[in-house]
Nucleic acid binder design. Structure first.
Lengths: 212, 212
DNA sequence: CCATGACGATGACATTTGTCACGACTGTCG
DNA sequence: CGACAGTCGTGACAAATGTCATCGTCATGG
């Protein structure tokens, strides 16, 4: 199987390459660190396209969603597997409505190879936490628009930052002049938005996201 | 004030430089990414030595403790401020018995500048969690030797790894074929060894440590 | 042999964390 | 104006987490 990797973090790119290659799952045709390059490289040689494209969402400039949009416009058969840090409801909704073949969380790297195989086999793959994030029943109301709130509000980011420093709720409340209950509620909201199960996951993902 | 920074992670080096410089606390004379270079650079120009040396402990080759030992051997007046990831009891004990002027945890970067000022003023600075790690009463018994158990056992590392992936105790227990109670105990032990307060701190520090 | 330490387990306990259901205030936008 | 979103607060409750004391096995090394 042939693949290509798009991620603005060179560390992620190379470790993904290693994993994919070492597992014998696929050969890596090329990598890119931004959406524009990705689109260009994908269009370049129609005869030698990746079977599955691993695509990060958060990138400077043209992001993964936009890149996917453009690629799918030309090649309806493109198999795109999003591999990103957050299980943001808005991102997931957009990715899937675009026609992506999968949405994985960077957290569990080991699942990349099997996911690629599944995608090759025509399946759609969602990371464990991704599915939980979406409420399965028909998303009535809310027509087609989805301005849910990509990412977090400023206050939420403040709190996420402190969580990622290992502070407990009491300390966070003290530092932000809030009640402990509010902090708990805020964090609960953040976890819900990002499809995470606990503060540790938030801390880990947050650090990963900041390190850009 | 003049300073120098020693850390094997270039990202840490540069961000520390930025912080120290931007805060107007000190100018950075040089940086090094290993103990040997640090000793060499320190000895090089006795007339233009850093007032405070920021020193990481975990580095390939000659580590921070060894470097400090050698530097202090020649210059008893050297002011060394350890800045490292773990509040490991053994590390702290060694650092302080060597005559270091401080021991900070990388976690809270903002405290670096004030700590340097305090050290310049002749004080010894310990990060908040560092002090808690040491039992204040006379450490009777155990003479001078300290082979506590630098770092963690293999099993403990297994668990730390899973914690840093955001798994909860139940999942960790399941994945390692342990009881949940054992997992709790193991984590409790790890936190104690490293002077940390909760799993989130462990996760954050662990990721930081692995990213080398 | 015996001490030691890593490993695993249990049960009890206190604390922290996460959820839920509320109410209230604010500023913005159609 | 009303709808709405973001913010902050409370109280109650369930679940997860961390700590302790205590026990047993096993391997290793003096």
């Amino acid at each position: 199987m042939k693949t290509a990797i798009v991620d603005d973090d060179p560390i992620v790119c190379s470790s993904l390459s290693t994993i994919v290659t070492a597992s014998g799952t696929a050969e890596v045709l090329w990598t890119a660190d931004n959406g524009d390059d990705a689109v260009r490289l994908y269009e370049q040689d129609p005869a030698n396209r990746p079977d599955v494209l691993l695509l990060d969402i958060q990138m400077p400039g043209t992001d993964g969603l936009e890149a996917a949009r453009r690629i799918l416009q030309r090649d309806k058969a493109a198999r795109i597997l999003f591999l990103t840090t957050f299980a943001d409801k808005s991102y997931i909704a957009q990715a899937l409505s675009l026609g992506a073949k999968g949405y994985l969380i960077k957290q569990d790297v080991k699942s990349v190879a099997p996911a690629m195989l599944a995608v090759m086999a025509g399946q759609v793959v969602l990371g464990s936490r991704v599915l939980d994030t979406l409420q399965l029943p028909g998303n009535e109301a809310q027509s087609g628009r989805q301005q849910l709130s990509v990412a977090l509000s400023e206050r939420e980011r403040d709190i996420a930052e402190l969580v990622s420093q290992g502070l407990d709720n009491r300390d966070i409340a003290h530092q932000l002049f809030l009640s402990e209950g509010t902090v708990r509620n805020r964090i609960s909201g953040i976890l819900d938005k990002l499809g995470m199960a606990n503060r540790t996951q938030l801390a880990v993902a947050w650090i990963d996201a900041q390190r850009r």
